[in-house]
Design a binder for these strands. Sequence first.
DNA 1: GCCAACGTTGGC
DNA 2: GCCAACGTTGGC
Length: 142
Amino acid sequence: MGHWLVKSEPDAFSWDQQVEAKVEPWTGVRNALAAINLRAMRQGDLAFFYHSNIGKEIVGVVEVVREAYPDPSDETGRWVCVDMQALSPVPRPVTLAAIKATPELADLALVRQSRLSVMPIGAEHWAMLCRMGGWKPPRKRR
DNA sequence: GCCAACGTTGGC
DNA sequence: GCCAACGTTGGC
């Protein structure tokens, strides 16, 4: 399973809005590398939901429920979006400051490429960030 | 195809 | 509000 981190300015689209919407198309990505990452997402992959600018912290986890398709907000038809579903909040939001204070996380794209809005997270980094945030995958309903 | 100018993102 | 990083645009 793939792991990711996606950024949103809470002014524009916040975690609370994601929770309320349940499933939300992740539109508006207009960066080539971010788009490559979007296209690599598979259904069932998980992503941290990060608040940029305001908060600067990981606040929740979303699940990819629909793989890349043409972004309806893009009239050129060149860019794609995916659908994200809110999974659960991160009990203790993981701040950028905390991430920067953790040497093992120094090579996260979040730190090294601050302007990239969609990035992969390695399995070990994912596990460490989950530990820092006290986040555990919710038990699946039967 | 180079590169200067400009615009945007996002941390501080 | 400032500015570093960096992507994009356009003149040549």
